Computed example of a mutant assay.
Amino acid sequence: MDIGTAIKILRKEKQLGQKQLAEMCGISVNALSQIEINATFPQKNTIKKICESLQIPVSYLLFFSISDDDIPDDKKVVFKSLNSAIKSILIE
């Protein structure tokens, strides 16, 4: 699960800088940077603030954070097909 990578992608999709998002969430830029490079895992409270700032439900963030390594080999083809379709709808 790459929650930090998902946050970074969604932040960029919303055209927000790290400083902007960090301020919106009430966390330091360094804390956000550490989350985005997956060096630290955000607390539940921080995840909620990030999602509120990005104007997305927590479930969207969790879906976006699913990585290839999380999917069994026999399900990867189906997941990749659904994943790109769902992401294109959710990001709009």
Rank of each mutant, 00 (worst) to 15 (best):
D73T: 03
D2I: 01
I27S: 04
A31S: 07
G17P: 04
S84T: 14
K12W: 00
I37Y: 01
Y60P: 05
V78A: 15
V77K: 15
I3M: 04
Q34Y: 07
L61N: 08
I66P: 01
C51I: 08
G17Y: 06
G4H: 00
R11V: 09
L61D: 08
N30C: 03
A39F: 03
S33T: 10
L82A: 12
K75G: 06
K14N: 05
Q20F: 02
I47S: 00
Q34H: 11
L32S: 02
Q15S: 04
P42E: 01
V29L: 07
F63E: 08
K19T: 08
L16K: 09
I89V: 14
F63N: 11
M1G: 11
A39I: 11
L90S: 08
I3R: 02
T40R: 11
L54V: 10
G26A: 06
L62W: 09
I9E: 14
L32E: 01
Q55R: 13
I50S: 01
S84L: 10
K49A: 12
L54P: 03
D73L: 04
E36Q: 03
Q15W: 11
K14A: 11
I3G: 05
K87Y: 08
K75Y: 11
V58I: 15
I35Q: 08
F63A: 15
I37R: 15
I27E: 03
I66L: 11
K44D: 10
K44L: 13
K19G: 01
K19P: 07
G17L: 10
S67G: 02
L21H: 01
S81K: 14
F79E: 06
D70A: 00
T5Q: 15
E23L: 10
D68M: 12
N45L: 02
I86N: 05
L61F: 04
L21T: 00
S84K: 09
I91D: 08
A31D: 07
L32R: 00
N30G: 04
A39W: 04
Q20P: 06
S59C: 14
I9S: 13
D2G: 01
S65V: 05
Y60W: 15
K19Q: 12
E23F: 06
E52P: 04
D68C: 03
E52A: 14
F64I: 05
I71Y: 00
K19L: 07
C25D: 04
I91K: 10
